[in-house]
Amino acid sequence: MNIIEVKNLHKIYKESEIEVHAVRGIDLIFEQGEFTAIVGPSGSGKTTFLNMIGGLDKPTEGEIVIDGVNINELKGSKLIDFRLRKIGFVFQAYNLIPVLTAKENVEFIMSLQKRPKKERIERAETLLKAVGLGDRLNARPSKLSGGQQQRVAVARALASKPMFILADEPTANLDSESTRNLLEIMENLNKMENITFIFSTHDARVVKKARRVITFDDGKVISDVKNKY
């Protein structure tokens, strides 16, 4: 089942008087259950592309249809609500709320969805246990290592039961042990719960695990390969 359809996507930034063509006419389709890596050199348009399909940035031209909705037409609170319901985010710098504990960070997304408190607490604990942080539920981000924080971020992204999770360089700040742990968790969630992951990365270990690898260069897709296991 197609969950994201990208048609003729362009993004032009204007920096001072210079126009930067970050994305140049991309057409892609993502299906339910994919575990996709977007690779390419710095400045190839990976992050811009992820931001646009995540509804964080508007394309200059083209269409992004998620679950049948053209997100370019959504504005303000409608777009924010759409992101809350459909998309999970994992950022390179973890971006957890520093004053909340690990459990509260995960619960927080569900509170935005106005889910009952009991459900929120149970799901937050389940997800944190699933990412191996069952014993760190009440620790604040400052008391967690980078790898642990990124696992909380994954749990938070999953908490809202999104259609897919976008992860921008999720392992960039992690050591090899933490990277291995995180990949394992993401892969398991993908295989066992059919959760769609789309991530941009430079990391060869991540690319090796991906079942689909899309390579960007100069704002275009230069290859789209499906690995078979």
Partner: peptide, 16 residues
């Protein structure tokens, strides 16, 4: 500012 951006990105309405 960054934290505010994150909160809006993950689905918090600006009014909240």
């Amino acid at each position: 500012k960054k934290e505010f951006g994150l909160l809006i990105a993950v689905g918090m309405r600006k009014i909240k």
